[in-house]
Simulated scan of single mutants.
Amino acid sequence: MAHPAPHLAADDDLSLLRFTEDLGMASLDFVELIVSMKTHYRIQIPDSGLQEVHTVQDFVVCLKKNRQISWLNLNFYFQ
């Protein structure tokens, strides 16, 4: 399997990666990611909250806004 983003260097800021353009995710892949995160972290994310999610950082911000359990702390991803 080919690397999904071969143009990236090890020290690139991964939070700025775009799901479609940089990671090659199809819309169904993105839906599967959302469903997995909702199930794993027991959170509800309204469809309207996903319309502005284009990058990994957008996704983490969306998760943080919609989290319903106090132990979920995603701050370590973007220090």
Rank of each mutant, 00 (worst) to 15 (best):
V31Q: 10
R42T: 07
V60F: 11
D58P: 06
D58I: 01
D13E: 13
V35S: 11
S48W: 12
M25N: 14
A26K: 10
V60H: 09
L17G: 10
F78Y: 07
H40V: 01
P46R: 15
F76E: 04
Q57V: 00
A26C: 12
S48T: 11
F30T: 00
H7N: 12
I34T: 11
V56Y: 02
F76V: 07
S36K: 13
S48A: 15
V35Q: 14
L63C: 10
F19E: 05
D12E: 10
F76N: 07
L16Y: 00
S36V: 05
R18E: 14
W71Q: 06
D47T: 04
A2H: 04
V60N: 07
G24W: 11
F78E: 02
D22M: 00
W71I: 09
A2L: 09
L28C: 05
G24P: 09
V31R: 11
F30P: 00
D58E: 00
S36P: 11
V53S: 01
V56P: 03
K64C: 04
I34S: 06
E52S: 14
N66A: 13
D11L: 14
N75E: 03
D13A: 10
N73F: 07
D47N: 05
F30Y: 08
P6I: 03
V35E: 05
L23W: 01
V53A: 02
E52L: 11
I43W: 02
V61L: 06
I43H: 00
N66D: 12
L33C: 11
F59W: 11
I43R: 00
N75M: 02
Y77F: 12
S48F: 13
L16D: 01
E52P: 06
H40E: 01
H3I: 03
F76M: 06
A5R: 01
A10E: 13
